[in-house]
């Protein structure tokens, strides 16, 4: 699966989020390609799941990807429940 971590610049909070998501996916044994991108790029990249902040989540919704807003980008618990939610509805 392809996961996009999206923030304004593409290398601050999105990389932080990617680090958290990579850890969670590794622990769960789920193979995924996780990419940190800026908001502009995110709109033109295909993905199965998008993790981002509240602001961008509302703007990225409506496409094919499952979009989830994350409040604490370093929280493995929060990212894990987002991933679980995605996996359970596949």
């Amino acid at each position: 699966m392809k996961v996009l971590c999206v923030c304004g610049m593409g290398f601050g909070s999105s990389l932080l989020l990617k680090m958290t998501a990579d850890k969670v996916l590794k622990n769960k044994g789920v193979k995924a390609d996780v990419e940190a991108v800026d908001f502009g790029t995110a709109q033109s990249v295909q993905a199965d799941m998008i993790l981002t902040n509240n602001e961008f989540a509302s703007q990225l919704q409506g496409g094919k990807a499952f979009v989830k807003a994350i409040m604490n980008m370093a929280s493995e618990q929060e990212v894990e429940s987002a991933i679980d939610e995605f996996l359970s509805q596949k």
Binding site: C7, G8, M9, G12, S13, N53, F56, N72, M73
Partner: peptide
């Protein structure tokens, strides 16, 4: 300037901001 354009994207956790630019 980035926040004026993109909104408060620097808020990364409750009560925590990560100001940064390129």
């Amino acid at each position: 300037e980035n926040i004026n354009q993109l909104g408060p994207y620097i808020l990364i956790a409750p009560n925590v901001a990560l100001p940064h630019a390129r």
